[in-house]
Structures are given as structure tokens and as C-alpha cells.
Amino acid sequence: MSTDETRAGQPASGQEDVEPADARVDDSGAEDAGRSAPALPPRGTPIIEVTGIGKSYGQVIALHDVTTSVRAGEVTCVLGDNGAGKSTFIKILAGAHEHSEGKFVVDGTSRNMSSPRAALALGIATVYQDLAVVPLMPVWRNFFLGSELTRGLGPIKRLDIAAMKRITKSELAAMGIDLRDVDQPIGTLSGGERQCVAIARAVYFGARALILDEPTAALGVRQSGIVLKYIAKARDRGLGVVFITHNPHHAYPVGDRFMLLRRGRSMGDFAKSEITLDELVRMMSGGAELEALAHELQDEPESALTKSLREEVETS
């Protein structure tokens, strides 16, 4: 990362340190556009608590009896394989779908979220897998889309383009992405970079609870590392992060709390002290099934082949 881009009072090694949100407002005047959400509570305070929450679509029960909490300054990891109910859980948290059972408590108040806007107003921001970016629009326009900065009043109220470009550049630099040109269409960035733009955007716009939908799913090892680093940064800043993933190796290093989903049901909600990485991996991949598999693969590789061949013979 080149240091000449990290102006605006950023330390030269902007990667390590993220300025508190307030400091950033000062250096460019009235840039409060999207920050209407309530302030961050002290570390460890539950922001979101769900109790026995569930959702059914007609006859289909997509999610049932899920309980967990999202606390300020902590990362809650939601782990599950494909079809485990992760998407449904996200949609409920994000306000896109209303839950049909259980309690959804935000800041101690029970809520029925009717729209993503309602969730955003409470400081619950979601970064979806499609990242909610418009590929043909420049990076800076995407960064501020929906919460654009303006100057002037009445008919000459206009976009504050210079400030938006500057902030986009410095926010991204703080994440370790040094864009030469924030004017390029966001569709031209790599997957990891787009992910970081989306996360940086949510953080900048005052998210208190940040829901990340499989942010590392489509990324390589190094880019995943960058994304995990930023999750940790968001956490250190005092945000409650919900990190949805199917990779326990990504979840364990940054997570404080782990909730496992399988077939629409919770397999448990553990604090980090209650579970080890090995246990997490085992639970994720179906416990006993994996052990059997590992046993076969390690000790007698040829027996697995024999077995499967025998099975084929038997079933045919």
C-alpha cells in the first residue's frame, strides 16, 4: 500500500489502525448523511438477541428455534452448509423477511422488522454476497449510493463530489486497498476489493451490527485474509458483526460466538471458550460421519474404494 494516498490524518500504515468514525466526520465538514443510527453501546452489550426465532414459507419450515446474540465488539459466526437456513436467518436479521416465530430483540426492544430500511435505521447493515453494487457506476458513487453527500441548498443542492472521492479513497486505503482511480467502474475491481468496498461502506455509514453474508466464499486465501482482517477491525471498533460462512477455519480466528445451523435448525450457540476449532469442524461436517471418513482416508485408503465399489455392486 502506498502511503501517499492515505492523507486526511491517517497514519502512514493505515492498515493497522482504523480511525474512530467521529474523527473522520471532522476532517470534511457536514458528512453525516447516512449516520442516523443510534450510537454504539459499550463493548459486550447485546445489540441483537434472537430467541427461538423461526420462519416458514407456507408449508416449508426454513428456520426453526434459533437462538443467539450479537454483541457490540464481538463477532457472532453463523456456520452451516448449503441449505442449512443461513440465507433465511440473514434475511430476518436484515429486515428483508419478517420472522414467523420467536422473538427478535434489538437494544432490548422486541421488533418486527418490515423492511431493510427499518433495519438500517436501527444500525443493522447487511453486506450481501452480490454486494449491492452497481457494476457500471464508479467506485465512489457506489460507496455513497443512497447516502450521497451534498452541498448547497435548494436548487443548487449538489453532490459533494470532491469530498466523496476523498473519503472513498481514504476509507479504502484504511482497508488496505489503494485504488489509483476511484472513478473506475466498480465492476472492474477484483472480488476481494469489491467485498472490502461493501464492508467499508457499511462501516462508514454507521452500522452498529454488520451482517456479512459469506464474505470469503468466492475469495482466494490471501483476499480472504484481508477480509477477515477487516472483520476484526470492525469488531475492534465496537461493532457487532454477524459473520456467515461455511468455513470454520475462517470463522474460528475472528469469532467470539458460534451458532451452527443444520437443516433449518440450530445445533447450538457457543461462546469461544466453550468450543475448540476441532470440535467446530467436527460439528460442521457432521461429527461422526467425518470421523469415519477421516479414518478411512488416513488408515486404509484402499478400503474406502473397496467399500464404495461393494456398495455399488450391492445397490445395482
Binding site: G34, P116, R117, L120, T126, Y128, D130, L131, A132, V133, V134, P135, L136, M137, R141, F144, L145, G146, S147, E148, T150, K157, R158, L159, I161, R201
Partner: peptide, 28 residues
């Protein structure tokens, strides 16, 4: 031209045309 390039509604015009679902998600 002023509306399209220099105002918030102009930004939204590009956004709803480029990716409607994404625009909705970010509050356009």
C-alpha cells in the same frame, strides 16, 4: 445534465437502471 451528474436523484437514476435490486438494498 445537472440532475444526472451533480445531484442525488441523478445518482439514483444511474443506480436503478444499472442494478435495481442492489439499489434497493442500499436504500435508494
Amino acid at each position: 445534465t445537472w440532475l444526472l451528474l451533480r445531484t442525488r436523484p441523478g445518482n439514483w437514476v444511474f443506480a436503478v437502471g444499472g442494478a435495481q435490486q442492489s439499489s434497493r438494498q442500499v436504500g435508494v
